Simulated assay, not measured.
Amino acid sequence: MKGARLATRICGVIAIAAGAAGVAMGQAQVAVPAQSSVSPSDANKAAMAEIMRHGSYLPRGGAPNSLLYNPAPPAPGSAAMARDEEAAKAALALHGTPRWEQAKIDADLFTPKLTDTFSCAAGFRIGADTTPRVQALLFKAMMDFGLASYPTKNHYKRARPFMENGKAICTPDQEGILRKDGSYPSGHSAIGFGMGLILADLVPDRAGELVARGRAFGESRRICNVHWLSDVEEGRIVATTVFARLNAEPAFTADIAAARAELAEKRASLPVPDCARENAALAM
């Protein structure tokens, strides 16, 4: 995007897709580093364009500044860094297992089927064809959760685990952009935990399962060897803070009400997903 000024950036894979599709995000155009080696497929570009057409609830700069509530990342040689390194080693032991395969699935923000990630936790199939109002709500809020991590990301520019240990990641096609995108905090973790919080509000009888799935979504980034444990944990703090802010936004509360009405009408008739594989993977 020649001559365009980078007003803001969104978590790695969203930035790749948005830039490749030439999509505007909220009030700011998303730019992709020129040296990125990632070339999303036409299907991925179309899928991301569909996701991003929902926009976001908060204006640019409207989310609480993450630098005010995210502390500095663990310092080299500190006990906190030792904890991060130990958690990274434990994650490497899961490479090639069903949990690794689930982490690959959780890594993909390109697809409109992203919301289906929470179907097992919800107990019914979530998607454009089954719960369109819930789908639109989650995708619109997703942008707010992802963008909110960037004040901290851009300030600290923390290196990711794979840059330190040289081991494989579950999305090798994204390595180029991940190297240029700060590790702390995790935007994926903020998105996953944020979606879990929204769904827990909509389906309170499944709140425990949904928050746990949002937590596991973020943990998948540690399993993928692209985020430290503290990155994932602080992503959850970003999500919680943004969720509180969204609840003061009239458009968000209106869409929550519409999504709640949709579920009250449809939930009993919605298809139930087959969760055997996912449950077994997450149990690891």
Rank of each mutant, 00 (worst) to 15 (best):
N154C: 03
G194C: 15
G96V: 03
E164A: 12
T152I: 11
F139K: 08
R158N: 02
P40A: 12
V232I: 02
A24F: 00
L67P: 00
E278V: 13
R267K: 15
A49F: 05
P59H: 11
E50G: 06
A87C: 07
G187D: 01
D108A: 02
A259K: 06
K180S: 15
S41R: 11
L92W: 03
K266V: 00
I51Y: 05
P250S: 05
R215Y: 09
G3D: 15
K266L: 11
G96L: 04
L67M: 08
L147A: 11
R221E: 09
A244D: 05
S119G: 11
P98F: 03
E234F: 12
A259E: 06
G214Y: 04
M163N: 04
F217C: 05
E86R: 09
L147H: 02
S37Y: 01
D116H: 12
S41E: 10
D173C: 00
T240D: 14
A28G: 08
L178A: 05
M48A: 12
A72M: 12
L210I: 07
F217E: 03
A88I: 12
A43K: 14
K2I: 12
I256C: 01
P185T: 14
C170G: 13
P271V: 04
H54C: 04
A63M: 07
A7N: 12
T115Y: 08
T130W: 04
D144H: 08
A254Y: 01
A18Y: 07
R215F: 06
M1D: 13
G182E: 06
T171V: 09
I14C: 13
K153I: 15
P74I: 08
L138A: 06
A141C: 08
Q135I: 02
S230V: 02
A257Y: 03
D84H: 09
A268I: 08
C120S: 08
S39A: 13
R215I: 12
A148H: 01
L109E: 02
V242T: 05
